[in-house]
Simulated assay, not measured.
Amino acid sequence: MSNRLQQLHAAGVSIWLDYIDRTMLFNGDLERRIRDEALTGMTSNPTIFEKAMAEGEAYDKQLSSAESGLSPWELFELVETEDVRRACDLFAPVYDATKGADGMVSIEVSPGVANDSQATVEEAKRLWRAVERPNVMIKVPGTETGAVAVRELITEGINVNITLLFSVDAHRRVIDAYLDALDARAAAGKPVDGIASVASFFVSRVDTLVDKKLDALIATLPEDRRAHAESLKGKAAIANAKMAYRLFQQKFSGPRWDALAAKGARVQRPLWASTSTKNKAYRDVMYVEQLIGPDTVNTMPPATIDAFADHGVVARTVDADLDAAERVLADLTALGIDMRQVTDQLLEEGITSFQKSFDGLLGGIEKKVSSLAAR
């Protein structure tokens, strides 16, 4: 069953699990996935923790024994950092075998600091110290202020996962922040060979919004133009991601990058996020199959990993048919669908969604603590 996943890994894709809970960290499930499914990393976020903590009793003992007076936020950091430390330890053999190039586990700053670069930096540093593992990555939102924070964090030698990237322009901004930080370290005589970063570029949500806009548009078009508009559904996200990968190839080549690479610097890999298929009419592994290529990461929920293991097709696709990808985006523009507006909306919705999950998580912890105290 894992053969396709091994092939995917061999094609240059690091397979990261977009899920975490305490049970899998201690019952052997994660070790099995690392061994059998070529799993080389893990991502977490408030939504995932909200689900994990709401189900079962895996966190009850730690919450019950925590010192009194801690806020729900402090309790959350207590349990999440323990989980992430444990996950980092389980991925340590991968980290060691790849000489620090993989085996990463991401932990996210709270969404409330998304538009405050200094608060982001301070929270990221606190999480970095709390986990205290070389293979932890601090996840920072890809806002304009987030890019400022990325530059400072990378300059200080902290691994960073920039999340909620939807536009190629935002991707360019965080690549530039990464390169500027590496240049600053090199100029100061500091090493650049021990730092890792990924740029999490979200995929399926783009199709969800663009398809919705296409459906509304198709209803207003003359019959002879509807078929073409219909044919664009389910294509915007892959086209957008391919443009991001092309930018990655351009930025990590040439004299500037060669000078950093000679000092041992690593590329900031594109990470394809939101790769579970939301539309049941589409192939369930399309956002994995169509973005395969060197120096990429694909973070998938367990169901998508299982689906790819069962019937995924491996071929280098991420930089294939770029002319067709450009035509898709041009055709959408011609129909009046503004991709900048789409990606701006998705970023705003993404931050709002994470804030909602974070608030729900803190509320859930508060209820859990109250119920435990009443026993």
Rank of each mutant, 00 (worst) to 15 (best):
F166E: 10
S167W: 02
V168L: 07
D169L: 11
R172S: 12
R173P: 01
V174Y: 07
I175S: 01
L179I: 15
D180S: 12
L182E: 09
D183C: 01
D183H: 07
D183F: 01
A184P: 09
A186H: 10
A187H: 12
A188R: 13
A188Q: 14
K190M: 15
K190R: 15
D193S: 13
I195F: 05
A196P: 04
S197Y: 08
S197W: 00
V198Y: 01
V198P: 02
V198N: 00
V198E: 02
S200T: 12
V203P: 05
S204M: 08
R205P: 06
R205K: 14
V206M: 13
V206H: 06
D207V: 07
D207G: 03
D207A: 07
L209C: 11
V210E: 07
K212H: 14
K212W: 10
L217M: 09
L217Y: 01
A219L: 09
P222F: 08
R225S: 14
R226L: 08
A227N: 11
A227R: 14
H228V: 10
A229T: 05
A229R: 05
S231H: 05
K233E: 08
A236L: 02
A236G: 03
A241Y: 10
K242N: 12
K242E: 03
M243W: 10
M243D: 12
M243Q: 15
A244S: 13
Y245M: 10
Y245P: 02
R246D: 15
R246N: 13
L247E: 14
K251M: 14
F252G: 00
F252D: 05
S253F: 06
S253D: 15
S253I: 01
P255I: 04
R256L: 08
R256T: 13
D258F: 03
A259H: 12
A262Y: 09
A262S: 13
A262L: 04
G264R: 05
V267M: 07
Q268N: 07
Q268W: 04
P270C: 10
L271I: 09
A273C: 11
S274W: 00
S274T: 07
S274M: 05
S274I: 00
T275V: 14
N279T: 04
K280M: 11
A281R: 08
A281H: 12
A281V: 01
M286Y: 08
Y287T: 04
Y287D: 02
E289M: 03
Q290W: 06
Q290C: 01
L291M: 11
P294D: 08
D295H: 11
D295R: 11
T296I: 06
V297L: 03
N298T: 04
T299K: 01
T299P: 09
M300L: 14
M300T: 03
P302T: 08
A303E: 14
T304L: 07
T304I: 07
D306Y: 00
D306T: 11
D306S: 11
